[in-house]
């Protein structure tokens, strides 16, 4: 086959309506996700079990919510480094409220989300009204939230109520155990449904609503958007509020799955979330964001995290694998874009 026919085939592939609609990078990410899943399943029969799928889901929730949120900040052309520690901070504080101060769980959940939203607001104000670079502003609030959580719990770890306790009902939001007639309990990953609903809502917000349109536009060209009479400061702030709020929700998801929170933890979570966003195809320079892509990216990471031990590799290989996937996914996108120009 000559070079020209290969090129033609590639062009036909790129111009295929399905490929165009989904986007090359998202398609590559989706294929990667499926291939990784199949390969793991082929090597390890136990990976194919239902319970493994449930643990994949369990590992994806908190990263998933964070990643959906930070997609907005990244689409504005900014970044939110604080989401990891904000997750831990809000979950620590409200976990302590629940266990030490007997605040009702329902209220705790609301407060948890609110704390995230407040940090988001703080970030948004610093970036849009005070004019701080997003990297610096959110680095600052990363440290703030890390310290604040530890101070509030006097540097002690917090364990949220267990599923067996009455106050542990909130875990059902993410996983319900249905006990069958034979006495075997089957876990239903309700969290996945919640994650999907939130993702669809957020995708609608980003693609079909005015705030979303403005967030994308200002990420592409903030001056032109401002001179069109759009209040860019407001919408830029909103993007960070969404990012923070989603980190608060992620805090609940984390507590529901992992129970115990350590003060000073959470640093590094944000990088996993950002990696998921980037693998999914959102542009780091702003002006383009995809929630569907973000979800795919997040699941690639949680399949790797959960699956590698099944094929005999320890968890820290996950870092290596994610790193490679990240670099490869973005490289494919860069290479494709070059070809098109």
């Amino acid at each position: 086959m000559s070079a020209k026919t290969t090129e033609k085939k590639q062009n036909a592939f790129l111009n295929n309506p399905i490929v165009k609609a989904v986007g090359t990078q998202r398609l590559i990410a989706l294929l990667a996700l499926i291939i990784i899943y199949i390969v793991f399943g082929a090597i390890s029969p136990s990976f194919r079990q239902y319970s493994t799928l449930v643990s994949i889901f369990d590992a994806s929730y908190y990263i998933g919510f964070m990643a959906i949120g930070v997609t907005f900040a990244i689409t504005t052309g900014g970044i939110d480094l604080s989401i990891g520690t904000v997750l831990v901070c809000s979950s620590l504080v409200t976990g302590a409220l629940a266990t030490k101060y007997n605040v009702p769980i329902a209220l705790c959940l609301i407060i948890c989300i609110l704390i995230g939203a407040i940090f988001g607001l703080l970030n948004g104000l610093m970036v849009s009204y005070m004019g701080l670079p997003p990297f610096i502003a959110t680095l600052g609030s990363m440290m703030l939230s890390k310290g604040f959580g530890s101070i509030f719990t006097k540097a002690q770890s917090v364990t949220w109520p267990q599923a067996t306790e009455a106050a542990g009902w909130f875990r059902n939001i993410f996983k319900i155990n249905i006990v069958g007639a034979n006495g075997m309990s089957t876990p239903i990953p309700t969290g996945f449904i919640l994650l999907l609903i939130v993702a669809i809502l957020m995708a609608t917000l980003l693609n079909k609503s005015r705030p979303g349109r403005y967030i994308v536009a200002l990420g592409s060209n903030i001056e032109a958007t401002r001179l069109s009479g759009v209040n860019v400061a407001k919408w830029q702030t909103l993007a960070y509020i969404i990012s923070g709020t989603m980190a608060g929700i992620a805090g609940i998801a984390y507590a529901a799955v992992y129970s115990t929170l350590l003060p000073g933890g959470g640093a590094g979570f944000e990088l996993d979330a950002i990696a998921g966003v980037v693998i999914g195809g959102t542009s780091m320079s702003g002006g383009y964001g995809t929630i569907a892509g973000t979800l795919i990216g997040v699941f690639i990471m949680s399949v790797l995290k959960t699956g590698l031990p099944f094929i005999g590799l320890q968890t820290h290989y996950q870092q290596v694998a994610t790193g490679l996937v990240l670099i490869f996914a973005v490289f494919m996108d860069v290479a494709n874009r070059k070809k098109r120009n």
């Binding site: 403005y214 536009a217 060209n221 032109a224």
Partner: peptide, 23 residues
């Protein structure tokens, strides 16, 4: 730099200032 959002479509740029009328 200041007039249009290059990456967005003709339609999106055209309605940028009056999006409230397109809801």
């Amino acid at each position: 730099r200041y007039g249009i959002v290059l990456a967005q479509s003709v339609a999106q740029n055209s309605t940028m200032s009056s999006l409230q009328n397109f809801m």
